[in-house]
Design a protein around this nucleic acid. Structure first.
Length: 543
DNA sequence: ACCGCAGTTGATACG
DNA sequence: TCGTATCAACTGCGG
């Protein structure tokens, strides 16, 4: 008689879930679909209200989806950290099995190892199933000679060895009833001195831990109000939920021309109505779309036509995600920073530490983060990001290059933190990997290829319609000045738009020279304690 | 080993 | 006003 907890994390869906299928294979007597409301996410991760809203959408939709299959079940949200909560549930609810989807995120792995150990002690069987990625990232690493995948070629070669990803499976038709929901134990509240990284976004104190089963005592999904956010704080039109995700995917599947001709570098970052790419990334992050479902939908159509294929095609984009997951899986927590990361080049950026008191650099960072640099293309992208939680991939390239090697020369980790807060699709592996790519510290090396904040966007948007939408101060400026308003004559220059923070041409040269010097020094994140005088990595390397 | 090539660019010169 | 060639000059990869 199996009594099973299915632990939902970043797999907020019923379709294409090999882990949920494994739980149902146990033919459970009862099954608890549980979400643990973890202080690590609530306080220790930067999350904008836009992303909270998306997550709550996903949870509400999932709970409804479960109830549609079995009206006597629903998503059970319990407000406590999993490492203290699950052992109590095991004991008091007489749980026999715990099932969840595999996670290779540095925090996730540590959390899951603890849980697995405790479960073993209590005689609870744990079943972990790969589902978040197309291939188990640990298997990818093994197939890559036990090394992190640092190029798309390496990922493709490893994937070739592992064979095609599994085909997606349909949602279950039946779900078991819930077991007991008696809470005959104390709630462990988050420590009082835990640092709340989201305090600046809250109107009032977070109330989500008041009761373990929520304010209605029904294990319900929390609300933005409970989290202390103003009701108008979620400004994005992009909403979550498996239902929405499947609709979006179906629309995509019916547009085979879009899929067959898709080449990421050719899509326009300035296009906004509708955007030039699928906007499925937040669903991929929260698991409201299954990555296998997405992959096979795209691949079947790519193969029927004359698609360019990976890496530029739609499936290619998912392969980049696999590459970053496998790199993170192997490198672990140091992948999220330069320090201690043997694969990340050391560059003497400004603000290498968040407490660095470089006044000018801090001012530039702040203006960059809030879309006030005086470069309309950069500001438009950063304002769209803050407002909507999503910008096109190439816009991310442009603003990331601008903050790091192509303008401000500020440490990529400072930009990563801003993206962590604002992106709906924030995925630690992809975010860190892309910041390393754009700052030319790993994955990519052509630092002399620099995005111009003036000429790059003009390839797609000569008139600057994108700027006019997101930087309303410039709505009526003539097209020939829209990317360079500082060149406009006084009477045509809007008074409420800032002057540029620097002369881009000058900064371009300074950054390029510094990057050249950093490449010649050849030091990496593991040289960080000795980088002023330590031996050059270039000379040590035997290749 | 060595060589040539290609990779999510920009500025300029040319017909 | 275009499209295209060229240079700048790093790595990983394949022949």
């Amino acid at each position: 008689m199996a009594k099973v907890i299915y632990w939902f994390r970043t797999d907020l869906r019923l379709h294409d879930s090999p882990a949920l299928a494994a739980a149902l294979d146990l033919k459970p007597d009862c099954l608890w679909p549980i979400w643990t409301w973890d202080p690590h996410y609530v306080y220790e991760t930067r999350v904008h209200p836009n992303r909270w809203q998306f997550l709550l959408d996903c949870q509400n939709d999932l709970s409804e989806g479960i109830q549609k299959i079995n009206p006597k079940s629903r998503l059970i949200v319990m407000r406590e950290a999993p490492t203290t909560l699950l052992p109590k549930l095991f004991k008091h609810w007489k749980v026999t099995h715990l099932v969840f989807e595999k996670d290779v995120d540095a925090y996730g792995r540590e959390r899951d190892e603890k849980i697995i150990e405790i479960a073993k002690e209590q005689g609870v069987e744990v079943i972990v199933v790969n589902g978040r990625t197309l291939w188990d990232s640990d298997e990818v690493v093994k197939a890559n000679g036990n090394k992190p995948t640092m190029s798309i070629k390496q990922l493709e070669a490893a994937a070739e060895m592992l064979g095609d990803p599994q085909k997606p499976i349909p949602a279950p038709k039946k779900l078991p009833n819930l077991g007991t929901l008696d809470v005959i134990f104390e709630q462990n509240k988050p420590s009082k001195d835990i640092f709340d990284k989201n305090k600046h976004n809250r109107k009032s104190k977070d109330q989500s831990y008041n009761q373990i089963a929520g304010p209605e005592n029904g294990f319900e999904v929390p609300t933005l109000e409970e989290l202390g956010f103003d009701e108008n704080s979620a400004t994005t039109p992009i909403r979550g939920g498996e239902g929405k995700a499947l609709q979006q995917l179906e629309k995509l599947a019916n547009d085979s021309k879009f899929i067959m001709t898709f080449e990421k570098p050719k899509t326009a970052p300035t296009q906004f109505d509708p955007p030039a790419t699928t906007q499925l990334s937040p669903h991929v992050h929260f698991g409201s779309i299954g990555v296998r479902k997405f992959y096979w939908t795209a691949r079947d159509i790519e193969e029927k036509g004359n698609s360019s294929g990976p890496p530029q095609s739609l499936t290619g984009q998912l392969l980049f995600r696999e590459m970053y997951f496998a790199a993170f899986a192997k490198i672990g927590a140091p992948f999220l920073r330069t320090e201690g990361n043997p694969h990340c080049r050391y560059v003497p950026w400004s603000l290498r530490s968040p407490d660095d008191e470089n006044k000018k650099a801090n001012e530039w960072l702040d203006k960059w983060a809030h879309g006030q640099t005086g470069f309309p293309w950069i500001d438009a992208a950063m304002r769209q990001l803050r407002q909507e939680g999503w910008i096109h991939h190439l816009a991310r390239h442009a603003v990331a290059c601008f903050l790091t090697r192509g303008g401000c020369f500020i440490a990529w980790e400072r930009g990563l933190e801003v993206f962590e807060e604002l992106l709906l699709d924030h995925e630690p592996a992809c975010n860190a990997g892309n910041w390393q790519w754009l700052s030319c510290t790993a994955f990519y090396a052509m630092y002399y290829r620099m995005y111009s904040p003036v000429s790059f966007p003009q390839k797609w948007d000569k008139n600057g319609d994108y700027i006019r939408k997101y930087v309303p101060e410039l709505k009526n400026i003539p097209g020939k000045f829209i990317y360079e308003p500082w060149k406009a004559p006084k009477d045509q220059k809007p008074a409420d738009y800032p002057e540029p923070i620097f002369d881009f041409g000058e900064r371009r040269k300074i950054c390029m020279d510094q990057m050249k010097a950093a490449y010649e020094a050849g030091k990496y994140g593991t040289d960080i304690n000795s980088y002023e005088k330590g031996p050059s990595r270039k000379k040590q390397r035997t290749r």
